[in-house]
Design a protein around this nucleic acid. Structure first.
Length: 552
RNA sequence: GGUCUGUUGGUGAAGUGGCUUAACACACCACCCUCUCAAGGUGGCAUUCACGGGUUCGAAACCCGUACAGACUACCA
């Protein structure tokens, strides 16, 4: 029995040839140096920080070079697939503004001429490629049961030999085509394995874009290419898809490094030119007991990118963070070119950190803080409102009700050379400004007075301030002069230098007087500029709040 | 067990043989500024680049070995 007859027996319904597909998916007509890359997740429902980083880079490089970035869904493993998993990924990408040129755009829609972009819809294509291999005698059906494979493995472990289906252990490799046909006709379950032409003694070289030259022994494992469910294994799907979709750069996690000899061999067996590979270091985190480990979806809430969306970290801040960990020279570049953005920066694989970087939430928040501090008040308002509509409806309606007032609040110490930097995320803004809204300034309030705690003294200070000194129309200088006069009248020191030199000669200072006013109207001893707050609150509110304090 | 990769401060890291008495950023500490907080300013924070050996006039950088860590070694991706 010939290989061709065997191939026809296994894949009787496959009529197309590889050449047909080569014609259907021709070389892309792109400018010199244009990169085609992809993000190819399993539909597990959400995107991990490490994957987002890969996706971000996989998009950035085509963008820099005038290439194509596409999204492919790798759903050949039923166990990994979850309901609405594709939508979850699309939503996450959308939230982080990672748009695609081609690929899956929704659960039911795809765009681009190199599809389908969902692997489970490409079954016939994989079969065509597998059939060719069988015809060439480069692949064969394997009837070994999982138990038999397990046996081989324990035997190899016992003999301290290399583990795997290779050489004389590859039993089914030595079957005749007649035996194969007979067992297939009998209905024995089987899978398709590559008949590896590799020799473990020979070396194969990978020129990794990130790590440089890596040498491996050639692959001699007869790897599975088609599973018993008829779908391909990752390695085979990678070959078929990335060849046919004309991918030029494979940008993926470094857990794939050790499989690359298999991939290189697959390309060689078909006579295709292999793509370039860039293996990215794993994103790590430090465990409670001080050891490094992979960021885990289960243990670390900050691993899921939806967390940042919920926290209201601006998308741009996340991107800036990803860029700073992606290219080590980005941060200083951005420092020197503050007016430019990520799009103006040229990504370079050589400037990637090779080892896995620690995920630094602190740093992300810092970047976020700086970023928000540079936003205009109206931009803060718009972004915050958008966030609140999704995650804090009550706050959203308050923001809408007091639009101009809110913008004025966000403008305190903003839009100046050295803006205030206190909002790390949109979710944290309410905690900073709640006291500006009467809706929140109610119920059990906790006043955090400082040095002056005596209620009689506080009453005296506030009464005198309202009756004699406070003028709504005062400008900032006049306002502060009056607070100083108030301090003097009550025997407090109005000059901080003098007070610090002789603290024992006074009951307190203008700082303590200010604190009393500040706490009375906000409950907090730590707020932005008091003058601005009083100005925004206005006389009526201030009086009401001081009255309210009297009742406490 | 095998194959591959990595190891510079609390963290991210720069560094490709002499310009390194190891840049920069985050964190932390101190002081200054200051009505509080934040921000900002100034300074401090690795006598040393996992360890041992070698090459060299000279090494964090090159080579070898050891240790530790990670990945892969599935009909998972």
């Amino acid at each position: 029995m010939t290989n061709k007859e065997l191939a026809d027996l296994i894949f009787p319904h496959v009529t197309k040839t590889i050449e047909d597909y080569e014609k259907m998916y021709p070389e892309r007509n792109l400018p010199e140096g244009a990169v085609v890359s992809r993000f190819a997740p399993s539909p597990t429902g959400f995107v991990h920080m490490g994957s987002l980083r890969s996706a971000f880079i996989a998009k950035k490089v085509p963008q820099d070079t005038g290439g194509v970035f596409y999204l492919r869904i790798e759903d050949t493993d039923g166990a990994r697939t979850v309901e609405n998993g594709i939508q979850g990924i699309i939503d996450d990408l959308k939230n982080f503004e990672i748009t695609i040129d081609e690929g899956v755009v929704s659960e039911t829609e795809q765009k681009g001429a190199y599809g389908p972009y969902i692997q489970s819809q490409r079954k016939e294509i994989y079969e065509t490629f597998a059939k060719y291999l069988i015809e060439q005698g480069l692949a064969y059906p394997c009837f070994c049961s999982p138990e038999e494979i397990e046996e081989i493995r324990t035997m190899q472990e016992l003999n301290k030999e290399r583990i795997g289906y290779y050489g004389s252990y590859a039993k089914c490799r030595f079957l005749t085509n007649e035996e194969r046909a007979e067992r297939i006709r009998r209905g024995d379950p089987y899978i398709i394995r590559l008949k590896s032409p590799g020799n473990f003694q020979n070396k194969v070289v990978l020129q990794d874009l990130v790590r440089g030259k890596i040498e491996f022994p050639e692959n001699d494992l007869d790897i599975v290419i088609i599973k018993s469910d008829g779908l391909p294994l990752y390695h085979f799907a990678h070959l078929v898809d990335d060849h046919l979709m004309r991918t030029t750069h494979i940008i993926r996690g470094d857990e794939w490094i050790s499989s690359t000899p298999v991939h290189l061999q697959l390309f060689q067996v078909f006579g295709f030119e292999p793509p370039k590979y860039a293996h990215l270091g794993t994103v790590m985190k430090v465990d409670e007991n001080g050891t490094r480990r992979k960021l885990s979806k289960r243990k670390d809430p900050e691993a899921a990118v939806s967390y940042y969306h919920q926290q209201g970290i601006p998308v741009e801040a996340v991107k800036l963070y990803l860029m700073t960990i992606a290219n080590t020279n980005f941060e200083s570049w951005w420092d020197q070119n503050p007016t430019l953005g990520i799009d103006d920066f040229k990504f370079d694989f050589k400037k990637m950190s090779v080892s896995g970087s620690l995920f630094d939430l602190e740093k992300l928040l810092n970047i976020s803080k700086s970023y928000i501090s540079r936003m205009k008040a109206t931009e803060v308002y718009d972004s915050l409102l958008l966030w609140a509509k999704e995650f804090d409806q009550e706050f959203a309606s308050i923001l809408e009700k007091y639009k101009d007032y809110s913008i004025a609040i966000f403008n305190i110490e903003r839009e100046q050379k050295k803006p205030r930097k206190d909002y790390a995320s949109f979710s944290s803004i309410k905690d900073c400004v709640w006291y500006m809204y009467d809706e929140y300034f109610t119920g059990d309030l906790e006043y955090q007075f400082g040095k002056i705690q005596d209620r009689e003294e506080i009453r005296k200070i506030l009464k005198l301030y309202l009756e004699k000194y406070y003028q709504e129309s005062d400008d900032k200088d006049t306002w502060f002069q009056k607070v100083k006069q108030l301090s003097e009248e009550l025997g407090y020191c109005s000059d901080m230098k003098e007070y610090k030199a002789n603290p024992d000669q006074y009951p307190g200072s203008v700082a303590d007087i200010s604190t009393v006013i500040r706490v009375a109207v906000t409950t907090s001893a730590m707020t932005p500029d008091l003058y601005e707050i009083l100005r925004l609150l206005g006389r009526e509110r201030i009086e009401k709040r001081i009255e309210l304090l009297e009742t406490k």
